[in-house]
Amino acid sequence: MSRAAPTKRRRESRLAVWLLAPSLAFVALLGAFPVLSQFVLSFTHYNMKFADERGFAGLENFARLAADATFLQDFWQTIYFTVISVGFELAFGLAAALVLNRIGRGRAAMNTSIVLPWALPTVVAATMWSLILNDRMGLLNSVLVKLGAIDAPVVWLGPGLAMGSIILADVWKTTPFVAIILLAGLKSIPDQYYEAASLDGAGRWHQFRFVTVPLLRPFIAIALLFRTMDAFRVFDIVWVLTGGATKTETLSVYIYRMLFRYSDLGYGSAMTVALFLIVFLISLGLLKLLKASRETV
């Protein structure tokens, strides 16, 4: 019996490998292969339209990248978009989660209605916002003019306001995602903690500050991780609303131009590799934060 057990375990683990093999191959094909070929391409000169000029580039694409003012400007614009939109999404998402957590009747209806924006495909949501933000025919201006808040229609997608409008649309679209994650976190906090706190004389604010926030921290960190990674790669909303005009171009939009409009696979891949590394580093930092938040609990 004691001899048979390890053999059986070994046999089982061998079986497990075989059972996992198809999905691992699938992951390798869909995940590893494109990423690796992107790395390889980033060291070549390769434009699909000028296939005859294809050749090894060494680090030339990366040298070009380092001197590319557009890439740098778009990098800062992407950071700006990410920080502001994720910040608002966390604040509004937390507020929404706290409200939803206290609702007794009609919770299902509330949950459904709050998730709706998140369920819409981004392109559809963005197109809808482009109609809302249109200066003549848009809903936003007509409401504001009727309320007397503004005298003349505002060009929401024009200079100065375009990035703010894009952030508005993104916050509307993804706040529900944050709210749902934080709501799950709130549900996981046992009522007893609050009872104990109130016995100790803690008011609402102190309960929130010393019970809710610390216990919610891992969930906040998860929401932050997902949203930051997503926001940093933002494409559709920008593409539909401004096409990258008036200081709204993000790195993904620039990469799209390079890869698809110019069919420049070499340089485009170098930019993709850079984006990949940036997102990787940010996620690493956030994961550390996540780990730290777990340990303090």
């Binding site: 200066d135 003549r136 025919m137 229609p153 060009v155 997608l157 024009g158 200079p159 401004t242 005009a245």
Partner: peptide, 15 residues
């Protein structure tokens, strides 16, 4: 108008 800098074919046509 300043908003002309946000118009494509259809926005301008509709007006």
């Amino acid at each position: 108008p300043a908003s002309v800098l946000t118009y494509k074919e259809e926005e301008s046509r509709r007006l």
